[in-house]
Design a protein around this nucleic acid. Structure first.
Lengths: 144, 144
DNA sequence: TGCTAATTCGCACGACTTGCAGATCACGGG
DNA sequence: CCCGTGATCTGCAAGTCGTGCGAATTAGCA
């Protein structure tokens, strides 16, 4: 996702208005590595701007996603998360605490895939499952 | 997913009862390559057993998933799909029609991943995006 | 400054899934 | 083969997540 200033320009170029609510969300999202849900963003935004509507958060998230400034992620939990990192990357999620981190994968093109049968693959999305460092030490003591 | 007969035994061993509704779902799911949603299964099951409840379909799907007989899949569409193929495999989804197919990936361990930072990866799930053969020919004539 | 279309907000609604409770049924024991 | 008990089935209510809608407000340009 680009900087708040760049996004403001991009929004205006598209005929979209730059409201205080949107500026706030630009700031909250920029560089955000937490892969927040809409609710989480709403919570953060509400502290900074009491009265902001959850509806507006969804609206702006959709606008940003449509502009390719956000990646929309769907995980096992069923919840939708938003990732302002739109550089080609992948994810690792902790089985225990759900913590989600960005990872970068090389040599993806060397994978040998069987079953495409004419399917024209354009991109791949990888989600690694496992345990984050914190949960590893917990599991060492309290194996579930 | 194991065969209906094996599942019946496994259910009884767990103290679960083998009802006609469950047997029907075992049969509908066994070898099913369509990655159906709960609703789709309900539709199929309803034809074979009018009056079966959607609630029962969800119930049985959850039981099977808890027993590891089904993989639960979450995709961009937001809908939950169920995959009776629990062999280690991955998926390819058509961007246009949403068609979903199983693919098998080798040399996964040769991937070079940066950013784990102590994350202990146990498994990976890959979803390829692209166009299925049918949608490729459509797009050739009607580029979106 | 004023106009106009975009936006915000809050509520209602829709899709999907689960909780609940009474009626029913599977199945092991007699 | 019949019975008893507890699991299951079904239909409905409720919960979650996200969107449609409309009135009031506001951004941005002339």
């Amino acid at each position: 996702m680009r900087s708040p200033a760049e996004l403001s320009t991009a929004f205006r170029e598209r005929g979209l208005k730059v409201t205080p609510q949107r500026q706030l969300l630009f700031r909250v999202l920029h560089g955000n590595m937490t892969h927040p849900t809409a609710e989480a963003l709403f919570a953060t935004a509400s502290e900074l701007m009491p009265g902001i509507s959850l509806r507006t958060v969804y609206q702006t998230l959709n606008d940003l996603a449509a502009m390719g400034e956000l990646q929309v992620l769907h995980f096992a939990s069923g919840s939708t998360r938003f990732d302002p990192n739109v550089v080609d990357h992948h994810h690792a999620q902790c089985d225990r605490c759900g913590d989600l981190r960005d990872v970068y994968v090389q040599r993806l093109d060397e994978l040998q895939v069987h079953g495409f049968d004419g399917f024209a693959s354009r991109r791949a999305s990888i989600v690694f499952g496992g345990l984050c460092p914190a949960c590893q030490s917990i599991s060492d003591n309290n194996p579930t």
